[in-house]
Write a protein that binds this DNA or RNA. Structure first.
Lengths: 153, 153
DNA sequence: CGGTTGATGTCAGAACTTTGACATCCCCGA
DNA sequence: TCGGGGATGTCAAAGTTCTGACATCAACCG
């Protein structure tokens, strides 16, 4: 066994558990799990809920645009949309005048289901926010943006 | 269409994009993508790398313990370990004196591959850390903990 | 001693997501 | 006019992860 020094971590850390990536992963896993649990009662998956939430805010988004907004591939979003359509929560025209992108819209039932699910999901988010001291929330949102931006470029 | 007010968000937010969950998801997606890219050259997946990193720190962990440490199920970790074993990066005794849990260990080759991969991964983490101003890093780690703890209970 | 409880390893199947590929359609510039 | 570049929708296949289920084993307690 050679006595090579281990690779230097980018900041002082006792072990992997102290690394930013690890903690970020942990927080995300906890959120995902909590949301899964909260949405199960509403018969929705996390990607489906995300999709409904985005569509409520920005109707007529295309499949590809929804995929980008929820950080999955077009192909994945395609099957999500299929599920939502089969459940009658969204609609998509079969043909379109211009271009190839077909705009997706919420149905009334979709809006109802979203509103019902929001109660549960927002409760989860409230637990997160309550756990953060004082003005940390705003800073946290900024930091998330910085991280995403630094890694995307 | 009823004029029901939309469900109240747990904190002031212009839209979904301002919610903590959404930003967290976004940051995590960026990290995952960057790590995937960095690890591809080393022929490692993110779960495999995480596994090696944990094992370097805490040898003789069992399959179930590794699963918890990396936030996946025992079943998923099982296939990850299979891959690592087939690649000769880890070892596991076929039988054990006491109990059912079989301790996993890194091989010399496993340590070498980990060390090589760390260079790339730490570069990614460095990009994250550089993007965070001043003392935010320590606060951020704390906040991640608070979030995970609040959601787990 | 025997039953229960909790944790572990593993198998099988389903569900989800991704990569790779291809055809279609718009736009723009040569 | 027409050809490339870029974006979109979709199919097929593979990979990954999860849920459900079962058997094994240690520890505990009545």
């Amino acid at each position: 066994m050679e006595n090579a020094r281990p690779t230097e971590a980018p900041h002082s850390a006792k072990d992997v558990t102290d690394h930013v990536g690890y903690r970020l992963k942990r927080a995300h896993a906890a959120l995902r799990s909590a949301m899964d649990k909260a949405l199960r009662a509403h018969e929705l998956t996390v990607p489906q809920y995300s999709c409904l939430e985005i569509l409520a805010l920005r109707p007529d988004l295309s499949n590809a645009e929804l995929a980008r907004a929820t950080f999955v591939t077009r192909q994945s979003m395609n099957v999500v949309l299929r599920g939502l359509q089969d459940a009658g929560l969204t609609t998509r025209p079969d043909t379109v005048d211009h271009g190839r992108a077909r705009p997706v819209r919420l149905t009334d039932e979709g809006r109802r289901r979203l509103r019902a699910a929001q109660a549960s999901v927002y409760a989860v988010e409230a637990r997160m926010v309550r756990a953060l001291p004082g003005q940390r929330l705003a800073e946290l949102l900024e930091d998330f943006d910085r991280i995403a931006q630094a890694l995307d470029e």
